[in-house]
Design a protein around this nucleic acid. Sequence first.
RNA 1: UGCCGGAUCGUCCAAUGGUAGGACUGCGGCCUUUGGAGCCGUCUAUCUAGGUUCGAAUCCUAGUCCGGCAGCCA
Length: 569
Amino acid sequence: MSEQNNPESTAPVRSLDFIRKRITEDVKTGKNQGQVITRFPPEPNGYLHIGHAKSININFGIARDFNGRCHLRFDDTNPEKEDMEYINSIQADVKWLGYDWGIHRYNASDYFDKLYEYAIELIKNGKAYVCDLTADQVREYRGTLTEPGKPSPFRNRSAEESLVLFEKMATGGFPEGACTLRAKIDMASPNINLRDPAIYRIKHASHPHTGDKWHIYPMYDFAHGISDALEHITHSICTLEFEDHRPLYDWFLDNITIDCHPQQIEFARLNLTYTVMSKRKLLQLVKENFVSGWDDPRMPTLCGLRRRGYPPQAIINFCNRIGVDKTNSTVEIEMLEYYVREDLNKSALRVMGVLKPLKVVITNYPENQVEEFTAENNPEDATAGTRSISFSRTLYIEQEDFREDPPKGYFRLSPGKEVRLKHTYYITCQEVLKDADGKIVELHCTYDPESRGGSTPDNRKVQGTLHWVSAQHAVEADVYWYEHLFSKANADDVPEGQPFTVNLNPNSLTVLTGCKVEPGLANAKPGNRFQFLRQGYFNVDLDSKPGHLMFNRIVGLKDTWGKAEKKQK
RNA sequence: UGCCGGAUCGUCCAAUGGUAGGACUGCGGCCUUUGGAGCCGUCUAUCUAGGUUCGAAUCCUAGUCCGGCAGCCA
């Protein structure tokens, strides 16, 4: 977590999204004295994922753009589902994206005393009552989408009686489920959220912050808007499914004595192809060991993407590009991967790593000779400097880079064919050695001493340039080769009655052992990112150690040949 | 059959009464000591039907389709 990010640096110039347009208008008309205060309100019951990154980038980004601020507030109204375990990870993830809430870190539970007072105010004004109906009965009385509900028999209980009962609820005088405090709104409302929604329920659970002080906990709709108002939030930005809750959000603030009424604005949450974003499903993948944990590099969680090696700036750039709208949408994951490549192309040092080694002996190269060559570290960045690489008689190349019977358009090595070994010499394949099963185990090649440095005096061209590693200098590594977590673009598209896990991609992880990499990588540290020439971008895994190097494949390079060949078939 | 939203290239987002544009993807080319990167080009879109208007993605009317909502979850 030493990595810091600056979300401002590459904010593209483009037209304002609908939220920023509205806020611009509010500022112009002097609403809220021109102030803009937003908040990011995660529930500490899970890890943040890239969908949250969209929300974080909206809320903190708007605060930055309008010279306001953004609060981090943990929406910890339900002690049964929440865990201190999640709080640190959430904070780490927000910081990793490059955002800072400063001193404005709050919890909904900070306001439990005030919330309780507001509930009493509602009761005294005849706008809330204690209801003894069971959960099942409440459901019955609520009616349906098309039929109005009917009033609870406790609806007209006196304020005095409700007050007494409410206090008894709060102090643990009732078992869980015995009763609730409900807002008295309209049982016939076409909006079900307004049919006397629960404000408080009884839970004899200890809370991570308030301990055993309370036996009742406020519901989201009541706590959220009031928390916003208490913090003087000006724009309460949330996702589309809360649209139907906005009248309730407004009702609470209109019916208590409070000096602030934030504006709730809804936007469409992010969906991505080839993955899932629901907390429930992510949790299931972890709990049922479909992945190694929340930070499995295949997960769309921020800690998973971090471990995978995604640069935070790439995620920010992606969020800026996908925009903000109210249309339900699913962004192609290729768009995300593009921004990862774009970032890494500029920043990742180039190295050579052979994933599936094929031994090559340069038969006309002196037995014990070793030559040093200078290699650029990043052709996109001159300041990245150069390094020295060792060349010798026995090397490894990629198995994929040799074909005994090359297809049309194959530029790499084949019998009699000449190719360039990156930065060094041209070699020509003279002989193919096989084992008893006919498997190719070794190549005998010759090199052209005239081609030293990668070009010849006669200006002879070769079509292919291969990456390679000197056998005696190579260091071994394991490579975790990742593909999309799901094999279907829409992971939820399953046959009737089947779980979404049937769409899990069986090839989402391939562990390659015995990979051969440049010796300079021996001391690579977790979190270091490299481009393995011609292969893709790789991140040193958290568990990697000198002597046991582990690389995660972040994303591949664009593979024009691979695509072309696939099409030929 | 209730309420609330939404509908523009394959995907995501612009254009708010005046030439439908960008990004990703795809396709083609140039270049290349990474079949990378870069550069150039290119395909594809306003849900439908009426109406208003010199002019409609945008305004009006009527439809169609899609999403969300019946936790003492958030």
